[in-house]
Design a protein around this nucleic acid. Structure first.
Length: 425
RNA sequence: GUGAGUGUGGCGCAAUUGGUUAGCGCACCAGAUUGUGAUUCUGGGGGUCGUGGGUUCAAGUCCCAUCACUCACCCCA
């Protein structure tokens, strides 16, 4: 084995798997079109400062998971660990807040995090996501969530749960944080991590997985009870809108997301699949982010959906349809240079007529060419030998039935087209 | 960053308590079928057993290190 391999935590995408990915992306684009979301493509790397300021410097992503390096100009560059910060940066940079609001974007692309790989977790993974900027209406929150669920529905994924919470605003959250700190201050037995969180980012103690912390947190005051009237109202309306779409959800007062920019709505979708990385997508509202990045105050909300995890969940539910990529025609030549040249010419004509076609480029013996036709799942082979060449004829073989037809040279394109049409009906 | 497991031809596996030319299936190539595939039969190519060191008369098999993969913790998509 060569010592040169794909870097740890990355993966080559080979056929036929790559075809499945292409079809997944195609389906996503269709859904986005129906919901009137437009694609945004931002750079895969950004100034490191963007993520430190955007994602938050006490988050795990920034503290230990970023791919950061200096470029030759001495700039600190980071491969994007998530999608939102870049989109908001772009929104500010191009002064899109001046356009008709809200703006509805989607993206599909790779993200990078330096972590130990495991099932459903890679150093380069792929996300699709949406961001809606320039609006604070709970109707937007409802659309974002319903669009996410629409994706799962389209892929016929059924085994999941929506967790929903509101984490309030920088205006009403401090009051709650106070209460939480007071509550926790006389509790002992918090895990090591939570001791730190307690000081730096108390909310994060809420979703700690350690059993003892869970036990302590269970009776903690609830954030949802401390929301200001506006946040409370926003949260209620969102739930009403979700109900109209028949979306069922689970209120999860301990759901706080690991990124600092969230305000009000926060949500996660967890699949019930076996692996431990079962959070397939998550997101929330980030009304303070644009301002934090130096732009005007502009509300926004979005989600990120992990494509590798979607893929895993689909595999577990067995609802992955492998798109067949059969070839219409494979050209087989039996003879010398002249026959090969003729086959080469026929191949061109077929392709010009948008018929998918190939031939054996290794100039193998006829038997080898037929084998190659079989491997390529060719529906038909066009066989040309010395006899056909002399008579200006071709032999068309149906690879399923074994039937063969003798055709005039110039009949072939029309004949294949008719056969194709016949099959579709 | 922490812990556990695994590492043999392209893929999936095997090799008795360390014992002599490391096997099998699939795949690949060729022939049977000198103008034709997916079946069948026959034959063939391909492995310094992840890498480096050590123990031993002898190591795929034991020990150490290292790398990679897998799974889990942490966290996230």
């Amino acid at each position: 084995m060569s010592e040169l391999r794909a870097p740890r935590g990355t993966k080559d995408l080979l056929p036929p798997e790559s075809q499945i990915w292409a079809s997944i992306e195609g389906m996503l684009r269709e859904i986005y079109k129906i919901y009137n979301y437009k694609e945004i493509r931002t750079p895969i790397f950004e100034d490191t400062a963007l993520f430190i300021r955007g994602v938050g410097d006490t988050t795990d992503i920034v503290e230990k998971e970023m791919y950061t390096f200096n470029d030759k100009g001495g700039r600190s560059i980071t491969l994007r660990p998530e999608g939102t910060a870049s989109v908001v940066r772009s929104y500010i940079e191009h002064k899109l807040y001046g356009a008709s609001q809200p703006l509805k974007f989607f993206y599909i692309g790779p993200m990078f995090r330096y972590e130990r790989p495991q099932a459903g977790r890679y150093r380069q993974h792929h996300q699709t996501g949406i961001e809606v900027l320039g609006g604070d209406s709970p109707l937007i929150d409802a659309e974002v969530i319903s669009l996410g669920l629409e994706i799962l529905k389209n892929f016929k994924l059924t085994n999941w749960r929506l967790h929903l919470n509101s984490v309030g605003f920088p205006e009403c959250r401090p009051a709650y944080t106070e209460k939480l700190i007071t509550y926790l201050s006389d509790k002992s037995g918090l895990c090591e991590d939570c001791q730190k969180r307690y000081r730096r980012n108390p909310l994060r103690t809420l979703d700690c997985k350690s059993a003892t912390c869970k036990e302590i947190i269970k009776d903690a005051p609830l954030l949802t009870n401390s929301l200001c009237i506006e946040c409370h109202d926003h949260f209620q309306k969102l739930q009403e809108y979700l109900k109209i779409y028949g979306i069922s959800y689970e209120l999860d007062p301990f759901l706080v997301r690991g990124l600092d920019y969230y305000t009000r709505t926060a949500f996660e979708i967890k699949t019930k699949s076996s692996g431990s990385q079962n959070q397939i997508f998550g997101g929330g509202r980030y009304n303070g982010l644009a301002e934090q990045l130096g732009g005007p105050k502009s509300p926004g909300i979005g989600f990120g959906l992990g494509l590798e995890r979607l893929f895993l969940a689909l595999q577990e539910e067995n609802s992955l349809e492998i798109p067949l990529a059969p070839l219409d025609v494979f050209v087989v030549t039996i003879g010398g240079d002249e026959v090969v040249a003729k086959g080469w010419e026929i191949l061109y004509k077929l392709r010009e007529a948008n018929i998918s076609a190939d031939m054996d480029l290794l100039l193998r013996a006829p038997k080898g060419q037929m084998k190659a036709a079989g491997r390529n799942q060719a529906k038909y082979t066009v066989i040309i030998g010395e006899d056909e060449l002399r008579a200006n004829k071709l032999l068309l073989r149906d690879m399923d039935s074994g039937e063969e037809y003798t055709l005039d040279n110039n009949e072939i394109v029309k004949f294949v087209e008719e056969l194709e049409r016949g099959q579709e009906q």
